[in-house]
Design a protein around this nucleic acid. Structure first.
Length: 687
RNA sequence: GGCGAGAUAGCUCAGCUGGUUAGAGCGCAGCACUCAUAAUGCUGAGGUCCGGGGUUCGAGUCCCCGUCUCGCUACCA
C-alpha cells in the first residue's frame, strides 16, 4: 500500500436533536480519533472533520412539539455535542455545523453543479399536503398506522415500533401532525437522482477497487444493496427547514439529507481551510489524498453507495478509500435508544467519572463492535478498569517508578550487561510497535490496543522474572540494568499509548519527565531515557472503580427503564390521539360482526400473513391477516372474533381477502383478539 | 420469503489465502512473590470450533443442507 500524501478523515455527523452516547463513540468517534491521532503522531498530513447535522423534519417536528424554534434546538444540542466532544478529547480539526451559511452555499453550489450537468430527473408527483397549514408534509410530519406492525403512531418515513422504513403512502389513516387533519394528495415537483444509472459503475468500483480493503460487513451490505437494484430517489423535499434548493420555481423546497449532510464534510473542510490558510481542494479533489469515513453500520449505504454516486456524478471529487463501519453496541442486554433514554450519555459520564475519559476510551476500544454487535455492561467496565488499566498497565508503571525512586533517587540507572532475557525483552519493544502500527493502518483498533497492553504485560513479567527487589543488596549493578529496561518499556508505553489514551500519555510523560521525547519515531528505541535523566515522583495513572460507583450507574439505567416503561403506557406521545369526529351514519355504515375462525394457516413465503376462514353464520369468508407473528394458526381455530364484513376486498399474495379481523393493540404493539365474553351466534352484529 | 453478517472455553472475543496436540483476556483453582492500588508472575481445569453431509492426504478454516441471533428487504388494509 503506497502512502498517500494526505488523509481526509470524517466521522459521521451527529444529528442535533440529542446528546452523544457511548454507542456513537464506540461506533465512529473513538476509532476515528485513534486513527487520526496515530497519523498525526507519524507526522502525516491528516484532516479530521465533523459537525452537527441540523436539518430535517425531526428537528422541526420536535420544535413544534416543545413550542420552541428549530434554531433553539440545534443551538442547544450543537453546543452540548461540541463541548462534550472537546472535553472528552475527540480531536477534530474542526467541528462545524450544517446551519452555517458556508454550508448552505457549499451544498447549493454542489446541487447546482449536478443540476447543470443534467444529473437530476425532474418529476412531478403527488405528495401529502396539509390544507389548513398550506404546506406539503415531509415524511416525518405524517403519522398513521404502520402497515407492517399496526403501530398507530408510525411516521411517514419509518415505524419506530417495528423499525421498517416506509413511505407516507404506506400509512393507514395518514394524519398531518400539524393539524391532525387527514392530508390530501397534491402535485409537487422534485429532483430525483437516478441511482440506477450508476449501478454498473458502482458494481465495478466496489468489486474491483474496494473488495479487499472493505470490512466484510461493509462489503456484504453493499453487495446486498446492489443485488436488489438501485432506484431513483428524490434529492429534494418540501420543507422550510434546511438548505434551499437554489433554482427558480423551487419555493419551499430544501435539499434532502443526502445532498446536505455528507456535503457537511466538505463545508467543514472549507471553513477549516479558510482559517488555516490552506486549500480545501487538496483534501477533496487530489488523487493522492485518502478519504476515510468513520461511521456506524446504519450509515453504510449512505457512505458507500449514495455519497460516492453523488461525488462521481460531480466528477471532480475523489471517492472514499475506505469506510470502516462498526456494528452496534448494546447496553446491558438491550439496544441503545435515544428516545427510550436507554443509553450512557457522554456528558453525564464525564460528570460522574471526572478525569477518567481514558477509561471510557479504553473500554469502548476494547469492546468495539468491529466485526459484530457487542455489549457494554457496567460490570465489565469496572473489571476492565480494575484488572487491565489499574492492575496491568498502571501497576507496571507504578512499580517501575517506585523502584527507581527508591533505589536511585529517580535517576535513570545505567544499563550494563544484558543477558539473553534483557535482549529479548528489549527487542519485543520494537516488535510491539510495529504490530501496533500495522494494525492501526488496517483499522484493527481493538487488536492494536491489545498489543499495547501486551507491552505492559511483558514489563510485568520481566519484573517478576528478575525480581530486582531481591537483588538490590547483593548486586546493585544488575538492578540498574533491570530498572533501566523497565524504564525503557515505560517510556515506550508513554509514546505508544498516545493515540489510544491521550490523557494518560500526558500524565505518564510528565511523571517520567519526558514531555520532549514523545515522538512516535522514538518508539521502539531502547535508550529513550538516558543516564543523567531524572524521573518525577510516582503518581497513580488509574484508580480503582468501586462497586458502589457501578451500582449507581446500573440503578440509574434501571430507573430510566421504569420511567420510560410507565411513560410508554401513559404518555400521549405514544398513545394515539383521538381521531377526528365521524357522524353516526359513517359509523353505522360499517358492518361489524362476530365470526368464528374455522381454519387458519400461514400464507406460504410470508412472515406475517395468515389465511383465515371465518364462519359468518350465513356464509364463510376468507381473510388474509398480518398477525402471524402474534398468533399460532392452531390457537385461533374455534375462537370468536370481531370482523369488519363490508370492507372492500383486496388481493393479497394472490388470495382474495374479504374484510378484516379487528384487533386491539397495546402501546407495545402486541395484538389481542376481540371477542364477546361468552360465545354467541355467528353473524351477530356489533354496534 | 430474498439478501447480508454472525454462531469458537463459564464470560468477552482472536483465529489471514485449509496444515502438526484450537488461542488470548477476564473469571475460577492451586503455587510463587511482596517493589506495587491484595496488585504481579507461573501452573492448571474447561471446548463434539451450532448440527448434518461433502471436497481433500488433511477443514474451525472451502462447498451443500438445516437450526438460531442480528440487520436490510418483500407480503401487511
Amino acid at each position: 500500500m503506497s502512502q498517500p500524501k494526505r488523509y481526509t478523515v470524517t466521522a459521521a455527523l451527529p444529528y442535533a436533536n440529542g446528546p452523544v452516547h457511548i454507542g456513537h463513540l464506540a461506533g465512529a468517534y473513538i476509532p476515528a480519533d485513534v486513527f487520526v491521532r496515530y497519523q498525526r503522531a507519524r507526522k502525516r498530513d491528516v484532516l479530521f472533520v465533523c459537525g452537527s447535522d441540523e436539518h430535517g423534519a425531526a428537528i422541526t417536528l420536535r420544535a413544534k412539539k416543545e413550542g420552541i424554534s428549530p434554531q433553539a434546538i440545534i443551538d442547544k444540542y450543537h453546543h452540548l455535542i461540541k463541548e462534550s466532544f472537546e472535553a472528552f478529547g475527540i480531536s477534530f480539526d474542526i467541528y462545524h455545523r450544517t446551519s452555517d451559511p458556508l454550508h448552505h452555499e457549499t451544498s447549493q453550489e454542489f446541487f447546482k453543479n449536478l443540476s447543470e450537468k443534467g444529473v437530476f430527473v425532474e418529476r412531478e408527483s403527488e405528495q401529502f399536503y396539509d390544507e389548513s397549514h398550506q404546506q406539503f408534509l415531509a415524511d416525518r410530519y405524517i403519522t398513521g398506522t404502520c402497515p407492517k406492525c399496526r403501530y398507530e403512531a408510525a411516521y411517514g418515513d419509518q415505524c419506530e415500533k417495528c423499525g421498517s422504513s416506509l413511505s407516507p403512502n404506506d400509512l393507514l389513516e395518514p394524519k398531518s401532525t400539524l393539524s391532525g387533519q387527514t392530508p390530501v394528495l397534491k402535485k409537487t415537483k422534485h429532483w430525483y437522482l437516478p441511482m440506477n444509472h450508476y449501478e454498473e459503475w458502482l458494481k465495478w468500483w466496489i468489486i474491483n477497487e474496494q473488495k479487499d480493503s472493505l470490512k466484510a460487513n461493509v462489503y456484504g451490505q453493499c453487495r446486498s444493496w446492489l443485488e436488489q437494484g438501485l432506484h431513483e430517489r428524490a434529492m429534494t423535499r418540501d420543507l422550510d427547514w434546511g438548505v434551499k434548493v437554489p433554482l427558480p420555481n423551487a419555493e419551499g423546497k430544501v435539499l434532502y439529507v443526502w445532498l446536505d449532510a455528507p456535503i457537511g464534510y466538505i463545508s467543514a473542510t472549507k471553513a477549516w481551510a479558510q482559517s488555516h490558510q490552506k486549500n480545501w481542494q487538496d483534501y477533496w479533489k487530489s488523487p493522492d489524498t485518502h478519504l476515510i469515513h468513520f461511521i456506524g453500520k446504519d450509515n453504510i449505504v449512505f457512505h458507500s453507495i449514495i455519497f460516492p454516486i453523488i461525488l462521481k456524478a460531480h466528477g471532480e471529487y475523489i471517492l472514499p478509500k475506505n469506510v470502516p463501519a462498526n456494528e452496534f453496541l448494546n447496553l446491558e442486554g438491550n439496544k441503545i435508544s435515544t428516545s427510550r433514554n436507554w443509553a450512557v450519555w457522554l456528558h453525564e459520564y464525564m460528570q460522574d467519572f471526572p478525569n477518567q475519559n481514558d477509561v471510557l476510551r479504553y473500554v469502548l476500544m476494547a469492546i468495539a463492535p468491529e466485526t459484530k454487535d457487542s455489549e457494554f455492561t457496567w460490570k465489565d467496565f469496572q473489571t476492565r478498569n480494575n484488572s487491565e488499566l489499574v492492575a496491568t498497565l498502571g501497576n507496571f508503571i507504578n512499580r517501575t517508578v517506585v523502584l527507581t525512586n527508591k533505589y536511585f533517587e529517580g535517576y535513570v540507572p545505567v544499563r550494563k550487561d544484558c543477558t539473553v532475557l534483557e535482549n529479548k525483552v528489549l527487542a519485543s519493544i520494537a516488535e510491539q510497535k510495529s504490530k501496533i502500527e500495522s494494525l492501526l493502518e488496517h483499522y484493527k483498533f481493538r487488536e492494536a490496543l491489545y498489543e499495547l497492553m501486551e507491552l505492559a504485560r511483558i514489563g510485568n513479567k520481566y519484573l517478576a522474572d528478575t525480581e530486582p527487589w531481591k537483588l538490590f543488596k547483593q548486586d546493585p549493578d544488575l538492578v540498574k540494568t533491570i530498572l533501566n529496561v523497565a524504564l525503557q518499556i515505560s517510556a515506550n508505553l508513554a509514546i505508544l499509548m498516545q493515540p489510544f489514551l491521550p490523557q494518560t500519555a500526558q500524565k505518564l510523560a510528565k511523571m517520567l519527565q519526558m514531555e520532549s521525547l514523545m515522538d512516535w519515531e522514538k518508539a521502539g528505541e531502547t535508550e529513550i531515557l538516558k543516564n543523567p535523566h531524572c524521573i518525577g515522583k510516582e503518581e497513580l495513572l488509574f484508580s480503582k472503580i468501586e462497586d458502589a460507583a457501578i451500582e449507581v450507574q446500573v440503578q440509574k439505567l434501571n430507573a430510566t427503564k421504569h420511567t420510560s416503561n410507565t411513560n410508554l403506557s401513559a404518555s400521549e406521545s405514544v398513545l394515539k390521539p383521538v381521531k377526528t369526529e365521524v357522524s353516526f351514519e359513517q359509523f353505522t355504515s360499517m358492518d361489524i360482526r362476530i365470526a368464528t375462525v374455522k381454519e387458519a394457516q400461514k400464507v406460504p413465503k410470508t412472515q406475517k400473513l395468515l389465511r383465515i376462514t371465518l364462519d359468518l353464520g350465513l356464509e364463510e369468508r376468507t381473510v388474509v391477516s398480518g398477525i402471524a407473528e402474534f398468533f399460532e394458526p392452531e390457537q385461533l381455530v374455534g375462537k370468536q372474533v370481531c370482523y369488519l364484513a363490508n370492507l372492500a376486498p383486496r388481493i393479497i399474495k394472490g388470495i382474495a381477502s374479504q374484510g378484516m379481523i379487528l384487533m386491539a393493540e397495546d402501546p407495545q404493539g402486541q395484538l389481542y383478539l376481540l371477542a364477546p365474553q361468552i360465545a354467541i351466534a355467528n353473524g351477530s352484529l356489533v354496534g
